Simulated scan of single mutants.
Amino acid sequence: MKGQAIFQLLMLLREETDENHRLTQQNLLDRMKQRYDVQLNRRTLKVYLDALAEAGYSLCSTKKQRTLPDGSVETMHTDWYMEPQFEPGELRMMTDLLSAMPSLPDKQRNMLVDKLTQGASPTYRESAQESHVVYLHAPAAKQMLYTVEVLCEAITRNCTVQFRYGNYVLNEDGEPVLQPRTRSDGSVREYLVSPYEIVVSHGKYYLMCCKEPHRTVSHYRIDHIMDIRLTEQFERMPLSETLEQSTEHPRDLAEQLYMYSGSSVPCKFLADKHIIGDVLDWFGDDATFEQTIQDQVIVHVRTNPTALHHWALQYGDYVTVLEPVSLREAIGKTVHRLARAYEDKLAN
């Protein structure tokens, strides 16, 4: 009975109190009776409160003194509350981040939010609990959480995984659906890989792995992985045995750009000064800037050339790649091809 009552008291303090919602000992006694039909006396309540504090729970109270009939002074504790595990702002940030994850289906997202906010402080519950962040740009991956769970298990157990990898196509109703990649004969392509790490880049989850029978490290979007399963009969290939023996997952924003496979190289480009904020958003502190006389800056980053190729096209009006020369030439060819394509469209 004691163990159950002290646990019920803990739940009461966690869910009904915080710095803005304090309860006197009498309030606690009344709420224990109302909520759990548990009758406690003041002495037993004080024992339970002391036990919770000794166990490490963040119990707070206000000290007050009163003078007893014999003239002695007694110190009392009142206005009890428990400091929440997460502040309202912290919970808001975490629930908004969950809402902003494009790969989570609504059902799983709501389940995670409910778990996260279970036992939240009354101050948090009094605030607006509906997230104001909504991700509008991508369909959810139904198998996302399960896929991550299987990958973590495979890495822990040092075994390979097999899966199908999908691309989005339009179904008969014109809606995008994830469809497994196929071979030239129409059969579904199966991927057998040695998983090494899960990397999160720009809100997307990637698997860093080596695909059989190759010996190079690749990255796959986890929300595009379908029908994953452990293949315990095959041991995972050690990363040291791949052709990229020193490969680690990208450690900074510049190297994470679009998560293309392959090595990162030193790159340099001109950028209009008014997009310095955009450059920092994409490359972070890994970008270094060099002043120029005009309204441009020279930016130095270390990143994947293919990724920078695509990024430079996105900011084409404001960015000019200078180095490496091979990348500059490749972008030039792409721009000429695009120009011809648009000229043909206009002519027609």
Rank of each mutant, 00 (worst) to 15 (best):
F289I: 09
Y165A: 11
T306K: 10
Y146E: 13
H300M: 12
L308E: 06
Y315P: 04
V200Q: 11
V133Q: 00
V169E: 08
V199L: 11
I155F: 14
V335M: 03
T24C: 02
Q85G: 02
R109P: 02
E290K: 12
E83F: 11
P238H: 02
D278G: 02
L104A: 06
L151C: 12
P88D: 03
L9V: 12
D114V: 03
D106P: 00
L145I: 13
E232N: 02
P324D: 11
T147M: 08
T44I: 09
K204L: 12
V200L: 15
S121A: 07
D278M: 09
E130R: 10
H219Q: 05
Y168D: 08
E329D: 14
E19C: 07
K273H: 05
V325M: 11
E248D: 09
L29S: 03
G277H: 02
L59Y: 06
A341K: 10
E130S: 11
Q245P: 00
Y168P: 07
C152E: 03
E172G: 13
Y168L: 10
G277R: 04
I298F: 07
W311H: 06
G89M: 09
Q296W: 08
Q39P: 03
Y57A: 02
E87H: 09
K142R: 08
L346A: 05
L28I: 12
Y81A: 00
W311C: 03
K63N: 06
G89A: 08
E197L: 01
K268A: 04
V335C: 06
E190Q: 12
Y318A: 07
L338H: 14
S58H: 08
S194K: 05
P69F: 03
T231D: 11
G71L: 15
A154L: 07
P84S: 06
D114W: 01
H21W: 13
S131K: 01
M82D: 10
L230H: 08
D317Y: 10
P84N: 05
T288Q: 07
L59M: 06
V38A: 04
I155P: 10
S127A: 08
Y57K: 01
V325E: 08
H77I: 01
P139H: 05
V335L: 07
L9P: 03
I155D: 10
Q118A: 15
R35C: 09
F283M: 06
I6Q: 13
V133Y: 02
R31E: 13
L13A: 04
V319W: 09
T17V: 03
D70Y: 14
L10N: 00
V199D: 09
H132D: 04
A312W: 01
M94T: 15
D272Q: 15
I331T: 05
E15H: 07
D18Q: 13
S187Y: 04
T123C: 10
E83Q: 15
E130I: 12
P238V: 09
I298S: 02
L13P: 02
L29N: 03
